[in-house]
């Protein structure tokens, strides 16, 4: 499979990349890990005339904790997240999510920023970003701005990233004490994308009452969404099995579930509920541990 001809650019810094983007406009695509874009180009589903590779731009990858959040460079690979000791100690659910993305080859090259900017509806990261309330840091000609995750995913492979912007950083808030988070996924048997994935991040007070709940659902619809109904049914309650079951029943509400070979609308909606329940149940268990 040969892609259509294109020019390759390897800027040395973000400013240079932004300059190229400004000049080449719609004819250019940003290349991060390349694990979505390159296959699409090989199938000629995407035929950009220019690729702007961020691989040679220093400072775009790495993971730091700043006290309130984990700050993850956009070019950080899934494997770097999966194996990071900072992630494992501060937000282990991110390592859990990373570990079920694709296969080792994909995780070694694919990046968190590439995934979030591409916004594949079946990607794993979006569910976790929603559950944890992440912020995307975008850099454009006029400097940086932050976009909350709830404003990020606009539709099928569409995000709030503007035409001349580059996603440079992801800020994921740390969870307070008494919290637990989990990601549960029904993988596509061929691609291992999420047919349905649900991430729950819960905070329990000392009495075991849920004080804060974040639940994100990916895979089933054209974009990942926050399961607001589920969250509302969890907050303020003791999370026994019956409460979790009742809350999880709302997991497909607001998801524009798409039927395909992996399932009818009915089945995928059901999977949203099953995996939300499993994620919440595990998050509660971890919060108590």
């Amino acid at each position: 499979m040969y892609p259509a001809a294109f020019d390759y650019h390897a800027p040395k810094n973000v400013k240079e990349a932004l300059g190229l983007l400004g000049k080449l406009k719609d004819d250019a695509k940003i290349l991060a890990g390349g694990h979505s874009l390159i296959p699409m180009m090989k199938l000629r589903l995407a035929q950009p005339k220019h690729l702007i590779d961020l691989g040679k731009v220093p400072g775009l990858s790495g993971i730091k904790a700043d006290g309130k959040a984990l700050v993850i460079g956009a070019m950080t690979t899934h494997w770097e997240v999966e194996s990071s000791s900072a992630v494992k100690s501060k937000l282990p659910v991110l390592a859990e999510v990373a570990s079920v993305i694709g296969d080792p080859a994909v995780r070694n090259k694919g990046t968190i920023g590439g995934s979030l900017a591409h916004a594949d509806p079946a990607a794993d990261w979006p569910a976790a970003m929603i559950a944890l309330g992440a912020e995307m840091v975008c850099e454009g000609p006029k400097g940086k701005r932050k976009v909350g995750v709830d404003q990020w995913f606009l539709g099928l492979m569409a995000t709030a990233l503007k035409e001349r912007e580059i996603l440079v950083q992801v800020r994921v808030p740390l969870l307070p004490a008494g919290s637990g988070a989990a990601y549960m996924k029904f993988p596509h048997p061929a691609s291992r994308f999420a047919v349905v994935g649900a991430c729950a991040a819960l905070t329990l007070d000392k009495q075991g009452v849920c004080s804060k709940a974040g639940v994100g659902v990916t895979g089933a619809g054209t974009r990942a969404v926050r399961a607001k109904g589920v969250e509302a049914a969890l907050v303020g309650k003791r999370l026994d099995a019956a409460t979790i079951e009742a809350a999880a029943q709302k997991a497909a509400d607001g998801v524009d579930v798409q039927a395909d070979l992996q399932g009818s609308v009915e089945y995928k909606s059901h999977l949203c509920r099953v995996f939300a329940k499993r994620a919440i149940t595990e998050a509660v268990r971890r919060a108590g541990a």
Partner: peptide, 25 residues
């Protein structure tokens, strides 16, 4: 038994499972 299957769309006659992303080996 569990995963593989070539599926054609009945209306268009397109092979829907035409890649390793869709055809589950």
């Amino acid at each position: 038994a569990l995963w593989e299957g070539a599926v054609y769309d009945e209306g268009s006659g397109q092979l829907v499972t035409g890649s390793m992303m869709d055809y589950a080996l």
